[in-house]
């Protein structure tokens, strides 16, 4: 569909959001990501049955951790999309980018870092 979205997002593909490890979510922030989104299939529509439900619990826990360590839980989010929802994907990237621009760069990257919002997303490619 070639819908335009901000060029600040980098996608990391995994077989299923079931493969998105909370450790990788946290790691992305450790390296300096300003935000991370996990994009999975619609709930109940997981090609691998329940992968996206597990991913949801991990994102929830990552949110809690980010809140407690002072980064802010809003920097991580999960979205459920079907393969026909390219438009919504573009919207989500826009929304998330705007939210992160509002929050400012991650304090982890500090002043030295480039002033760009970068998100890494786990996308289901199955």
């Amino acid at each position: 569909m070639r819908l335009q979205y901000p060029p600040t997002v980098r996608i990391i593909e995994v077989p299923c959001t079931g493969k998105v490890d909370i450790i990788h979510l946290l790691q992305a922030f450790e390296y300096g990501a300003d935000g991370v989104i996990v994009v999975g299939c619609m709930e109940g529509d997981c090609h691998y049955q329940k992968g996206n439900l597990y991913a949801k619990t991990r994102v929830k826990r990552a949110k809690e951790i980010l809140d407690k360590v002072g980064l802010g839980g809003e920097r991580v989010a999960m979205f459920n999309l079907s393969s026909g929802m390219g438009g919504r994907f573009a919207e989500i990237i826009k929304e998330m980018t705007n939210k992160i621009l509002e929050l400012g760069p991650s304090p982890v990257r500090g002043a030295a870092a480039k002033a760009k919002a970068t998100g890494a997303a786990g996308e289901v490619t199955a």
Partner: peptide
Amino acid sequence: CQGCGTCASE
């Protein structure tokens, strides 16, 4: 195994 990775992350 279908390679979904759920077990690996859990």
